[in-house]
Amino acid sequence: MSPDEFFLRIPLGEGIAWLIRWFKENLSLLFDAFSWLMRALVDGLTDTLLLLPALVMVLLFALLSLVFRSWQFAIATAVLFLFALCIDVWEPMMQTMAQVLVATVCAIVIAVPVGILAATNRTVSVLVRPILDFMQTMPAFVYLIPAIIFFSVGTVPGLFSTIIFALPPGVRMTELGIRQVDSETVEAGESFGATPGQILTGIQLPLAIPTIMAGVNQVIMLSLSMAVISGMVGADGLGKLVVQGITTMNLPLGIEAGVGVVLLAVFLDRLTASLGNPGSYPTSLIALLKKSLAEKTAQRAAAEA
């Protein structure tokens, strides 16, 4: 007796495929709107990044690094992007960066509120956790199929699957960050008569920022890792070059595109890490500015006293 005869075959795949087609037919307006919005955002951002001459952009990126991290990192950034220019991956790199940033922003816009809900409500937390597990462990390629059904080929299905794949750490880290705020500090807010909203915005979120930013950092890294997979459904950028390299067995092209992804990853990772933990970078422009401001206030207070 073979298993085929013995067990009932549940048509899970067919069922979900049917559901997805049903979505496609009945919610097409929603998908069109999403598609239009994503394309507008990504195209707009890509155009902006490519508007100025590449060398000016390199300087701007270096300046960002100086403002948020340190002059050492600013030099590294300049070298890194100049190198990208020299291996001629600048344009696809900017396209990928635009997609990653848009996907990250969308993921965070969804993840942070869900994380806050999960942190304040046990039921939500219990419900959300298995969904997140599912989203993270499902092979990322699988998301491409419904994405193509919904949005056909191009940048948008890539973005859609990127957002789904990159979302979970944002939710988890937001929930964790809020939950690990010292309970006595939250009690202090309550004991002075703060409303739940005042406690959230005045105490929990500010104190959870480092953890939330660590989540954002992970979201960005996951988005980048999806960039290549998006290339398979026709999204522009470094992913497209990698896929071309694979399909034509063009090793030099593949390597150059791959190095471009690595360079972008290094820049985005270090920059967002310093955003979440400004205290660790005392030589950043922001820290120096804050310090001199604080000294001035202290001097003024001393003069008054």
């Binding site: 006595e184 500090t185 009690e187 002075f192 409303t195």
Partner: peptide, 19 residues
């Protein structure tokens, strides 16, 4: 909340200040 704002305040063991 109204009572806590007007009538009772509290001091905590580990200070519970907002950093």
């Amino acid at each position: 909340r109204e009572v806590r704002r007007r009538r009772i305040s509290m001091v905590f063991q580990h200070f519970a200040l907002l950093p």
